[in-house]
């Protein structure tokens, strides 16, 4: 999307008005996607962005912020929160008011939108999570560690193999008559079994539905094992767009599964909410550097410290040649010196 189009889109979102009230920005930088969400003081979502990370978190955040310039005045950004696997580097980059892990961010978002939810299923591009809430408080959680078979990338791969656009997956699955059973704990096995079933001549719909079941089964066997899943169940993350998966969950859990609005940017939404908690209503002045950072040049370099036998690899993160953060040292002596 061109910058102009985005700006227009943003203005449209905000009701054709240039944004004037204080807003809170949430940035979720994951390995696959990067999301930005703007909310106002009342928690209303004014704008969302869903971008691909392509392994370059800094650039993609700059790109996302660029789309905001021209529409937003720096002055109105009252707080910024970051989350996702690149939350720390992004936090340093924009000087966030709050840097939070994804689990908490997602839980906060759900607690706002669906206060009585007791289970959150989150499936993104490369990771999946289960969060158990009781009375709006996280009481247990689990994340996938290595296996890809319970994540979105698994579906992407299989859709590619089958030559079906991923957007059509859900619709196809719902049309299945005799869903085939696709075995496999991990992506590799499931793939070979799928190919086998294809050779046996099963219909595309049945295979697609089988894949949805397989993903759900893997999720339940790996991530949800031993956890008490009670309704209301909220399903979010990029994969929640897939109606086939949603139905498979409903059948496997025997519970209704709710997909909230903004399901694909809930992490960023939670980060924005957290920022609001910290800086809202004038509690604290934001540390945010301002949108001009889209023009800065950020760079990471690393060096080996020979200060002791640990030989830590020190990462220097610099903005326009000035080191703004360092990490990687065990002893903390490097973290302390930033320019």
């Amino acid at each position: 999307m061109s910058q102009i189009a985005l700006a227009a889109n943003l203005a449209a979102d905000a009701g054709h008005q240039p944004v004037a009230e204080p807003v809170f920005l949430g940035i979720d930088v994951g390995s696959v996607s990067t999301n930005l969400v703007l909310i106002n003081g009342a928690g209303k979502v004014l704008h969302t962005q869903y971008l691909r990370t392509y392994g370059r978190p800094v650039e993609v955040v700059q790109k996302g912020l660029t789309a905001l310039t021209g529409v937003l005045d720096d002055q109105v950004v009252a707080g910024v929160g970051t989350t996702g696997s690149a939350r720390h580097i992004t936090g340093h980059m924009v000087r966030a008011d709050v840097i939070k892990n994804e689990i908490t961010a997602h839980a906060v978002a759900v607690a706002e939108l669906a206060p009585d939810a007791r289970t959150i299923i989150e499936i993104g591009g490369q990771d999946s999570k289960l969060i158990i809430l009781r009375n709006g408080v996280v009481t247990d959680f689990a994340m996938n560690t290595v296996c890809a078979a319970g994540t979105g990338s698994f579906l992407d791969q299989q859709a590619f193999r089958l030559g079906v656009p991923i957007e059509e997956f859900g619709g196809l699955a719902l049309r299945a008559k005799n869903r085939v059973r696709i075995a496999g704990r991990c992506a590799v096995f499931a793939e070979s079994d799928m190919v086998h079933k294809q050779q046996l001549g099963h219909s595309l719909e049945d295979i697609v539905a089988g894949l949805c079941d397989a993903l759900v089964r893997n999720y339940i066997n790996n991530i949800a094992k031993g956890k008490e899943i009670l309704g209301p169940v909220v399903f979010q993350g990029g994969v929640a767009a897939n109606t086939g998966i949603r139905r498979a969950f409903e059948e496997a859990l025997q519970l209704e599964v709710i997909v909230p609005p903004h399901f694909d940017v809930m992490g960023a939404y939670g980060a924005a909410l957290l920022a609001r908690v910290i800086t809202g209503e004038g509690r604290r002045k934001t540390r945010f550097k301002g949108l001009q950072i889209v023009k800065s040049e950020f760079k990471s370099t690393s060096q080996e410290c020979k200060g002791c036998p640990n030989l830590c690899e020190i990462v220097n993160f610099s903005e326009d040649g000035r080191v703004i953060a360092r990490w990687g040292d065990r002893c903390g002596k490097w973290q302390a010196i930033t320019g």
Binding site: E102, V137, M143, L274, V277, I278
Partner: peptide, 27 residues
């Protein structure tokens, strides 16, 4: 990954303790 899980665990326990209202004690 471990860092994320630990942070989430610590948040969860802090919530449970009531020591941590959203945005309270630490960021």
């Amino acid at each position: 990954g471990l860092q994320t899980r630990l942070e989430a665990f610590v948040d969860m326990l802090a919530f449970k303790r009531g020591k941590y209202q959203l945005g309270g004690v630490y960021t």
